[in-house]
């Protein structure tokens, strides 16, 4: 038996688990998680140094805005997940409907953020205020940037879906976007209680 034959007859390597979407998106998600991890460390250190400011801080913010944006992120994420499920069954039109619903829901996030900032500024909460306010603007504006990138990505996968670029067996691009959107949702679920919920 030749070496070549032995190689071909060898059992396949054990499957360690799939990579959802593609490797590139996970490099991006790791970067996103690392970036926010550093900001969370700054948050916890600031909280340790200024417990009073962080105890009183959430009362200065609009809980309604925080809850609304959490509902928006979760619902948009849910719609994207339903879109991926539809694509797995080759239901391209249904997938596009779910993605459209996710887009219109997701656009609500920067809209709510706009009104929230207006509300904050009217009450004297600014980015150069005390430490809680600075941490709040620093983390939530960074998250807003990631949401806006995600909305652009959503437009891209909607166009690709409409053009028929994905099908049941090949929709890695769609799944990669979904992973990014869910990871951005996950980060918001960590931010929300730290600024809006903790009394």
């Amino acid at each position: 038996m030749s070496i070549g034959t032995a190689t071909f007859s060898a059992p396949p390597a054990p499957v360690l688990g799939r990579i959802p979407g593609n490797k590139a998106i996970w490099v991006g998600i790791y970067c996103e998680l690392t970036e926010f991890a550093l900001m969370f460390i700054v948050y916890f250190l600031a909280r340790a140094h200024h417990p009073e400011a962080f105890r009183d801080g959430p009362q200065q913010l609009s809980t309604l805005a925080g809850v609304t944006n959490t509902v928006i992120m979760l619902t948009s994420s849910y719609f994207v997940a339903r879109g991926v499920m539809a694509m797995r069954r080759s239901q391209r039109a249904t997938c596009l409907k779910w993605l459209t619903a996710a887009l219109f829901t997701g656009i609500g996030y920067p809209v709510v953020k706009f009104f929230e900032v207006q509300w904050n500024v009217a009450r004297g909460l600014s980015g150069n205020g005390e430490v809680f306010q600075m941490a709040y603007y620093y983390l939530t504006f960074n998250h807003l940037v990631h949401v806006c990138w995600g909305l652009l990505g959503l437009l891209w996968v909607m166009a690709r879906t409409w053009m028929g670029a994905y099908d049941a067996t090949d929709h890695d691009g769609l799944e990669a976007f979904a992973c990014y959107w869910h990871a951005t949702d996950l980060i918001w679920l960590m931010i929300f209680p730290l600024f809006y919920v903790l009394p």
């Binding site: 919920v197 903790l198 009394p199």
Partner: peptide, 14 residues
């Protein structure tokens, strides 16, 4: 999330 909103409005530190 809704429960979290209620805690944010009514909870006391602890």
């Amino acid at each position: 999330t809704l429960i979290g909103g209620v805690v944010g409005n009514t909870g006391s530190p602890g």
